[in-house]
């Protein structure tokens, strides 16, 4: 791939990132991770306490791109057809017409995804895994850019259903936003003194730019040694102490792809060990199922991945 394609792609990233930065203060790392996941073709699960800006971040991203955006609020009584769409009989032409659900879009914000029942949560499986939807025996493809940003409240909160492992595995990354520093929080208050700045946000890039970014990411090079390192990292979680179910090969694929995106954002045409290390926790941790016993003894999935990172020698 010619160098100027990388340049254009990087420019696209920079435009989106600075556009989001207008709204999301102090969340550069999260923004970058979100964009990396999107550029790598993955989906993101944001888990955090209510009010930390998950939805705002998703909306800011949607608004920064001149693309279709739909938002779906998950509730316990939400049905799969509410997401995928449904055929309705038309009196006019005596035929069934398929009415596309909110899943047929470019950017889908699945807000509070763990408030819906597992049945409804699983309706997203095919869409997220294969970018297609099978409804009433008919397969319908989703657009070239299909990016799901799901938010969830911590599992221990009231009225939540934990996501099934298979659904968790469909998310390329899970990360948190966290509370910003007091100074930045003051800045947020100041910005919203009169009205919400998000209302004035304009798209910075076109849909085509983002698709080009995705293609550019696919062309970032990664050496066999680093592929092996990623695989070793993921494999190590399967034998780590306290883990009932380790990460799948889907995790190593996601790790590689998002590392490629990160490398592109870093002005590199190839992936370095640092990219993989930096992403490992966000990509791997949410896929691990811990033993109940070790969970109660204070072992966290994040801790397991960090341990593995510390134990495995990194290529240098």
């Amino acid at each position: 791939m010619p160098m100027h394609h990388f340049e254009t792609a990087r420019e696209t990233y920079r435009k989106i990132a600075s556009n989001i930065a207008l709204i999301m203060r102090g969340q550069d790392v999260a923004t970058r991770q979100l964009l990396a996941a999107m550029a790598a073709g993955g989906h993101v699960l944001l888990e955090d306490f209510p009010g930390t800006g998950k939805t705002t971040l998703a909306k800011a991203l949607a608004k920064s791109i001149d693309a279709q955006f739909k938002r779906l609020q998950f509730t316990p009584d939400l049905l799969p057809s509410d997401i995928l769409g449904v055929s309705i009989f038309s009196q006019r032409d005596q035929q069934f017409h398929f009415h596309e659900g909110p899943v047929f879009t470019n950017i889908l914000l699945a807000d509070e995804i763990n408030r819906a029942s597992p049945r409804t949560q699983s309706a997203l499986l095919e869409a997220m895994g294969e970018a297609q939807v099978s409804v009433e025996g008919e397969r319908r493809n989703l657009p070239a850019l299909f990016f799901v940003i799901a938010t969830q409240n911590p599992v221990e909160f009231r009225g939540t259903y934990p996501l099934p492992e298979a659904q968790m595995d469909r998310f390329a990354m899970q990360f948190t936003l966290g509370y910003v520093s007091p100074a930045e929080e003051v800045a947020i208050l100041t910005a919203q003194e009169h009205n919400h700045p998000i209302d004035e946000l304009n798209p910075a890039v076109s849909l085509a730019d983002v698709v080009a970014l995705k293609h550019a990411v696919e062309n970032v090079r990664i050496s066999a040694e680093l592929k092996r390192y990623a695989v070793d990292l993921v494999a190590a979680t399967r034998t780590a102490a306290g883990v009932q179910l380790g990460a799948s090969p889907r995790a190593s694929i996601a790790l590689m792809k998002i590392a490629q995106a990160e490398a592109l954002f870093d002005n590199l045409e190839f992936v370095t060990p640092e990219h993989i290390q930096k992403l490992a926790v966000a990509v791997i941790a949410h896929r691990l199922v811990l033993d109940p016993q070790s969970r109660f003894s204070g072992i966290t999935a994040r801790g397991v991945v960090e341990d593995v990172l510390k134990k495995l020698p990194v290529p240098a």
């Binding site: 090079r221 040694e225 190839f270």
Partner: peptide
Amino acid sequence: HYRHRFDPN
């Protein structure tokens, strides 16, 4: 060095 080590090219 990284280019030498980790760039397949």
